[in-house]
Structure formats: C-alpha cells, structure tokens
Computed example of a mutant assay.
Amino acid sequence: MYLKRLKLINFRNYKELELDLNEKLNIFVGNNAQGKTNIVEAIYMSSLGKSFRTSKDKELIMFNRNQSYIKVEGQKKYSNVEVEIKLVANKKKRIKVNKLSLSKNSEILNNIYVVIFSPEDLRLIKEGPSERRKFMDNELSQMKPYYFHNLNSYNKILIQRNHLLKNMRGKDNEFMLEVWDEKLIDVGVKIIEERARFVKRITPLSRLIHRKITNNRENLEVTYLSNIDYVEDTNKLKDMFKKQLKEALKIDIKRGTTTVGPHRDDLGVFIDKIDIRSFGSQGQQRTCALSLKLAEIELVKGETGEYPVLLLDDVMSELDINRQNFLIKALKDVQLFITTTEINNLEELNMDEAFIFHVENAQVNRSR
C-alpha cells in the first residue's frame, strides 16, 4: 500500500498543512525542531490511533488551540482507504475510516499499515525488556486487532489484581484474588501464544536478512523468553500460569505487584550463540535491530498481503554507509518517508523518483 495525501490542522506546530505524497519516496529535510517528526507522527497515528512519542493526546494539539485534525488518504491493492482523527482537549478522540465513525478507536487497526524506524529503535536490543515487548505488541496489534483488545484487557485486569494485592485482608480478598487470577490467566495465555507465533515467524526472516547484511559472517537467532514456562498446549499453559501465580503469591503480596505473566516477557537475541543484549558491540546491536525491523516489513506483507509504509525518522545518519545501502536496496517495493537534516546523507537513493520537502518553522515547501 501507499499514502496519497496528508492533511493536518492545529497538529503540533502545524496550523494547516496539505501535502500530496509520492508513492515511492518522500524526503523531509530541515534542521531539528522544525516539524519533520510531527509529520511522521501524524502518519503513524493514522495506523495505530496513537502517537509513538507521547501517551497524552492533548500534547498533539497546537498551543492555544482546543482541537486538532489529521486526515490521511491511502491506496491499497484493491481499495482506497481514508482515516480521519479529531482530537479535542479533555475529550476522547474521534476517528473515522472511509467517512464512517468508529464505535471503538481500536477499529482503526488493520486499515493503514506502517513500520517506524527511529534512533530509539536502534537501541531496541540494548535497552530493557519493555522495549522488546513493545516491539512485539505494536506489530501484533497492527496485524491482529483482537490482540490489541486482549492486551488492553490484560493490562486492566493486572491493575485490579495489583490493587487487591496491596490491600490483602482476609478470605474475601482471597476469593476475589482467585477471580482476578482466572481472568488474568485466560487473557494472558492468548497474549503468550500470539507472541510465541510472532517470534516463530520473524526469526527465520530476520536471520536471512542478517546474513545478507553481514555477508554470511553472523548467524542471528531470536528466541521468545516467556515469563511463564511455555508449552504449546493451551490447557497445560493455563495450568502452568496458575501454578506459577500461586508459587509467587507471598512475594506478590509483599511487593504489592504481580511478578508472573506476559508483562514480564522478553526476547533473547543471539549472534552465534552469544547474547548480543549484554555482550554485543554497538554495531552488532544496530545490525540486529535493522534485521528485526526489515523482517517486520516482510511479516506485515505476509499477514496482510500489503507492504506497510516505512517511516525512517532521522535514522539514516545513525547508520554507516553499508547499512544504508542495504536498507535502501531492500525497500524497493515499500513507500518511504525519510526525515533528515542533511540530504547529502542520502546519496544512495534514487532522487529522480522522490518528492523532496524542505521544512522550516512548520512551513513545508516541495522543491521536487
């Protein structure tokens, strides 16, 4: 798929902006803090209904305004798609897809597909487990909206269980804890199974890409590190989850928090059996992150039949020339949005088919 048009009103530092987009390559050039990433952020929101920079929608509304608006028009293989998002201060966001209002904002998923690659993603490997869980969750939510629903349900149940743990008194609370445990297990197992399938599919894709980047010098292996002793049988997995919750109960009560469940999951990332999270060089960690991101693109294509849009937010300058070359060659079938401070860093791109936008103080002018 590709995006055709973008419209913003009172979004971040843009009072009003309308852009026609190139179906292959769109480059936004300008100094820092001019508004380049705000454009990428708006596109990301049209896919997942949320920002990758903040959890507070009010921060997306222009200063001294009380509402903002995003409209993105795209083209899929067999249909057009239009997503509109209206943000109003202190109110729930309103979303329309193809002019129809959504009863639940999660229904925005599975309409526009995006993969984002930013300097923060280059730290995917060396940062903590929460970053790798987010990597799994964001992609699974986009491809499988029911996963997003299960994840939200799990987090709400987890909050209730933790609240109960902090206030444990008597048998009534013990009964309520059993109720929340059953709910946590039921939804948690669904999350664990989807994550396991995700890792099983992305591992061979990322391994193949990694071999190409490193000229067959390194062998990448990605493993799912479930916080529950994972088994493929659903009923046995539920029994294992229940057993481990009971074993951890005293610790959970003492700490006032749940120490067992998929909210403690992680990914293991190994090169030639060495744990790159702890012992890899910065170059190896970046190559692993790049391999996982490119595998993500192929996974979306395999799942949905559509290539996602790729957002490269200020990432090209973070990659050496060899990784830049590989990235560009691997993305010939994908619509690209690139933000950069220096267009000279993009010498490997085919500029003949690009739209180049110059961004300065929220003013966007196309030079080509």
Rank of each mutant, 00 (worst) to 15 (best):
R133E: 02
V29G: 04
I209A: 07
P145M: 03
L19N: 01
L310P: 03
R368V: 02
L25D: 00
T304M: 07
I213C: 00
L164E: 03
L319Q: 05
N13S: 14
L299F: 13
E59R: 05
I202T: 09
K99L: 10
E296N: 11
N111R: 03
G74F: 04
F357E: 01
N90E: 11
T259S: 14
F11Q: 07
N361H: 15
N90T: 05
L225T: 06
R195C: 10
S141H: 05
N345F: 11
K56H: 13
V189C: 11
S51H: 04
S103Q: 12
P308Y: 04
V189A: 12
V231N: 03
D320F: 08
N64M: 15
V359D: 02
T340E: 05
R12S: 01
F241D: 08
K246Q: 14
F198V: 06
E41A: 09
K254M: 15
L8K: 02
L87I: 13
D252K: 09
N162H: 06
R53A: 05
E23C: 09
L17A: 06
N64C: 03
K77A: 15
R132P: 06
L100V: 12
I85E: 05
I271V: 15
T340F: 07
M240V: 14
E16A: 13
L21P: 01
K254V: 09
I271D: 04
F198G: 07
P308T: 08
N66M: 12
L109P: 02
Y69V: 08
M168N: 04
L102G: 00
